[in-house]
Simulated assay, not measured.
Amino acid sequence: MAEINLFLIFLGSILFDLLIGDPRFFIHPVQIIGFYIKKISDYLINNFGENKKILFWGGFIVAISTIVMSFSLGKLIELSYMQLRNNFFSGLLIFIGLSSCIATKGLISSVKEIAELIENKEINGQNERIIKDKVQRIVSRDVRSSSLEHLLRSSTESLTENSVDGIFGPLFWMFIGIVLMKFSIFLPGPLSLGLSYKAISTLDSMIGYKYGYFRYLGFFSAKIEDMFTFIPSRLVLITLPLVSSKINEYVLIIKESYLDGKKYDSPNSGISEAIFAYISGIKLGGKSKYKNEIIEKPIINANGDICTGEKINLICQLILRLQFLWIIIFILISSLI
């Protein structure tokens, strides 16, 4: 019975995120995780910035300690819920925790807002600054000198890449936790794996870069994120065409997306961007500014159209459809185990 209730909490948390998102009156786990990562990373950079070896192993400690603490907190709450036989307070914590691991509403809303501001507002100096500030919050590149077309592309690339990190990756690992706890309550569960993945994703977004100090400090964080996102990104690759109008081109689209996605240094972000690009018919990649350096990313879907608000709306619809498909698959698998 407890396992069934846990699965219902899991489904309820997905619905809550879709309808409400992250309540502003709660401290989000990412804020706590991010505070811890920043404090230790700043200490290492400020005191040992010239020592590559200390940065390298310090980054390992930052990554492992962040993940272990996140996992342990989730596991403690899960054990409390299971051993106290569906304890309401523990169940509520699991519900809130699982919902906070998913970012569907927040991600879609932020990108849609940017697209609407660009396409439906009269662009003047003040509006352009507002738009650039909103884009800068969701991307790591420098968009201060970007054109409106580039701002739309940046937002689209963030949407397609973060759909895995912020939605499908957490969903996958939380479901794995549901399955594992059917065999033993002491195995990793949905909250412990969900919070762990959120910690891994936050580590990568904060220090997992390939320039300056972060080349050493964030090495382990980036590699761990690559490993834990590997399967979810490929599941998105093979399932997204099933909820699109291009299902009759299934094999061709997957092949082209995989080949284009492999051009990226990251083993995952290129693939997730590529499958959305091919299905929505847009071109991604090209020049972007990071710090003071211009980086030329490989072109994805070279014959695609430029990014528009209409294309962003289509991608958002695809994300919601795919999430619904995954939930159906989860229910079917869970009923068979």
Rank of each mutant, 00 (worst) to 15 (best):
A2W: 05
A2Y: 06
E3F: 03
L6I: 04
F7T: 01
F7M: 08
L8V: 08
I9S: 00
I9W: 00
F10I: 01
F10V: 02
I14W: 03
D17F: 14
L18D: 10
L19D: 10
F25R: 12
F26A: 15
H28V: 10
I33P: 01
I37K: 02
K38Q: 14
I40S: 07
L44R: 00
G49V: 05
K53H: 11
I54R: 04
I61W: 03
V62I: 10
S65Y: 04
S65A: 13
F71L: 12
L73E: 10
I77D: 00
L79I: 00
Y81P: 00
M82F: 02
S90M: 05
G91Q: 06
I94K: 02
S100C: 15
C101P: 03
C101L: 09
I102V: 15
A103R: 10
S109R: 07
V111G: 04
E113Q: 11
A115I: 00
N120P: 08
K121C: 12
N124Q: 10
N127P: 09
R129T: 12
I130Y: 13
D133R: 15
V135Q: 02
V143Y: 03
R144N: 15
S146D: 08
L148E: 10
H150Q: 11
R153T: 06
S154M: 07
S155P: 07
T156Y: 08
E157H: 08
E157D: 07
S158Q: 07
S158C: 12
N162D: 11
N162F: 05
G166P: 05
V179G: 03
K182A: 10
L187P: 00
L187Q: 00
P188R: 04
P188E: 01
L191G: 01
G194D: 02
S196V: 02
S196F: 03
Y197F: 13
S205H: 12
M206I: 08
K223C: 14
S233P: 06
V236T: 14
I238Y: 13
I238Q: 15
T239S: 13
L240P: 00
L242T: 13
L252Q: 14
I254T: 11
S257R: 06
Y258Q: 11
G261P: 06
Y264K: 10
S269P: 10
S269K: 14
G270R: 04
I279M: 01
G281L: 07
K287E: 15
K287M: 13
K287H: 14
E296I: 05
I300H: 07
N301K: 08
T308G: 06
G309C: 06
E310R: 15
K311Y: 11
C316V: 04
Q317M: 12
F324M: 14
I331V: 14
L332Y: 12
L336E: 13
